[in-house]
Design a binder for these strands. Structure first.
Lengths: 347, 347
DNA sequence: CTCCGCCGTGTACGCGCTTACTGTATGCGC
DNA sequence: GCGCATACAGTAAGCGCGTACACGGCGGAG
């Protein structure tokens, strides 16, 4: 294979110095038009593509933002589950990043291992967004010493981490409070159960909101979720199927996320129960699939696009001013009433 | 902000040389256990995160794979359309890459501009996958001179590009041929129309398959698609709404992709037509949403996961042997018969 | 005509790491 | 006890680019 051309070849070919080549390629400097042309010609002729690594090293800037998200699917069949909440986050962040001239470096990580991959990512970008529960706190702290970090959907982290990373969360508690209130007030259900996700701050906050709605109305409150899922459709199906086979018949299920609610729908249908006539179901997240299943899923929608946008701008602010104190920002959610709660949606 | 530690600090702290630090961190070298411990301790204490840029530059390897996909959504509301085919490709590739220890660098690009972003991506990874129509041919050719490139869903490129990049396609023609045959043979429709995507080789190949199915049965064949969409739901809706408002009433619509078919569903419902009783509809791609809309979409499913997997392994093969001749590999598709064609799916 | 500034260009250093090569113990066979 | 192979550690040379600084030429002011 012919050797890959470098600035030096380009410079020689264009009969200018490497500094001039660099100036031309970075666009904004004052270079005699004639030289500029020669450089472009040489670049085209040699098929020159600058080395990102050398560029980053010299300029101390990568033009890349990172995103670590959880590997919820694990080693299961990738096609066995619907697109996740984080798939929409990836899309939103990619857009936000691109608008600012950044590319997006993504990798799924477990909380436990994969430290190498995390390092691969962290070492190569100017700023990093991590979804909660994907990177161990000590590692996160180290990374935060090098580049700005925004944690999405936390925090469940020790204080020392909270001090060095920004947090961006959604109104989990308020959203769950509101959707639970809807079931209680509008539909008059009293026997409303909660299907939790895995041990996560988001699921916990949603459970709190659920509890608060019951408490406020003087209803008996479960001290803990009635069933535990894992944020996947399969998990939701299993959890609810178990509940039903144990003979329970709650009037409504508040699910910790949409995937779980989707699984609940399947389990209920499997048991011959109608939604919402026999059992009402609500989700959380607002994934697009929820609009298309039947009955359409009543849910608490997160502002996906704004989350990506906000995360990127927080990164930028910190890039501009590294002395900034760490922040905790909460984004509002919106309850999307559709059919699965018992309302018949009229679009 | 305190200065970011480098190998030198770590080496000094651990009282070893930078070479030893490097050896310890790359894992596989023979280093006295005592030194190894000291290095790890120093890394932890200093909060050391190696610079990806310096690493890549010295090692001539990034541990990153790139993916350029088309920016179909443009500046519209990101939430206005369902997840695209390429969203599932992103997911599939990320998984395939991760399994091999690579992170994934992604960026959406237009065919026209964004050459900077493409360069940002190409300069920073060991191999690149581009979806068709995202990177101009000359740029692609340059990049291919530097790193292996696999083009997904092409080729519509000049020969010189075909010679330097690998191509990975699906059986567009065969899939469209088969699903059209299903409409003709099983359901006995004769008035089957084709709704194309934008000017793309994929749409064209699918149209050919559609034509061939009609030809083979001695049916009259349209010389060109009956309507043109742009691969988006909104485009499909508009295209079909136009057709209907012009007074046309085909018995079946073969759509160039699922998004278009989804839009067709909406347009037909808006015109008071029932699917499949009045008009049958089929899609192409097999996005997950298609299973959940009503009626469930009959479509030609692409093997998303295998595509990502295959693309990554092609990259690896070329990384291992740069002299490899360029290849064109076609992956099989599977016709998923569901409800929208007129079959009542019995799961 | 001379001096001072400014503009545009080139020289050369360094970004933080990997790794070929060199150096130094240590163990082994004779 | 000597020489040689072996096992590690250290030295230092880049990797390909950006950019501080030096430098030369030219125009305007004095």
């Amino acid at each position: 294979m012919r050797t890959v051309p470098t600035v030096y070849e380009v410079a020689r070919h264009a009969r200018v110095s490497t500094a001039t080549v660099s100036r031309v390629l970075s666009g904004n400097d004052r270079v005699r038009p004639e030289y500029r042309e020669r450089v472009f010609a040489a670049v085209a002729e040699l098929g020159y593509v600058p080395s990102g690594a050398a560029r980053d090293l010299a300029a101390r800037r990568a033009g890349v933002l990172g995103l670590c998200f959880p590997d919820l699917v694990g080693d299961q069949d990738i096609e066995s589950d619907a697109m996740f909440w984080y798939d929409e986050i990836i899309r939103g962040m990619e857009r936000a990043a691109r608008r600012r001239g950044y590319a997006l470096l993504i990798a799924a990580c477990h909380d436990t291992d994969d430290v190498d991959l995390v390092t691969t990512v962290a070492g190569r970008c100017d700023g990093l967004v991590v979804l909660a529960r994907t990177v161990p706190a000590p590692v996160l702290e180290r990374i935060a010493g090098r580049i700005p970090v925004v944690m999405l959907a936390g925090p469940r982290t020790p204080d020392e981490v909270a001090r060095v990373v920004d947090h961006l969360v959604v109104a989990n508690r308020a959203g769950a409070f509101e959707v639970t209130g809807h079931l209680l007030d509008v539909h008059g259900y009293t026997d409303v159960w909660f299907i939790a996700g895995p041990d996560s701050p988001d699921s916990a906050a949603r459970f709190e909101g659920y509890q608060a709605a019951l408490t406020e109305r003087g209803l008996p409150v479960a001290p803990r979720p009635h069933a535990i899922s894992d944020f996947t459709t399969a998990g939701g199906r299993r959890a609810v199927a178990q509940l039903l086979s144990d003979g329970h018949r709650p009037r409504a299920l508040v699910c910790a996320n949409d995937q779980t609610a989707l699984g609940a729908l399947t389990a209920l249908a499997g048991a011959g129960l109608r939604v919402p006539q026999d059992v009402a179901v609500t989700g959380f997240d607002g994934i697009q699939l929820g609009q298309h299943v039947r009955p359409a899923l009543t849910t608490v929608a997160q502002p996906m696009r704004q989350l990506g946008e906000k995360a990127v701008s927080m990164l930028e602010e910190r890039l501009a001013d590294s002395a900034l104190a760490s922040r905790l920002i909460e984004m509002p959610v919106r309850v999307d009433i559709r059919d699965s709660c018992g309302c018949s949606a009229v679009p």
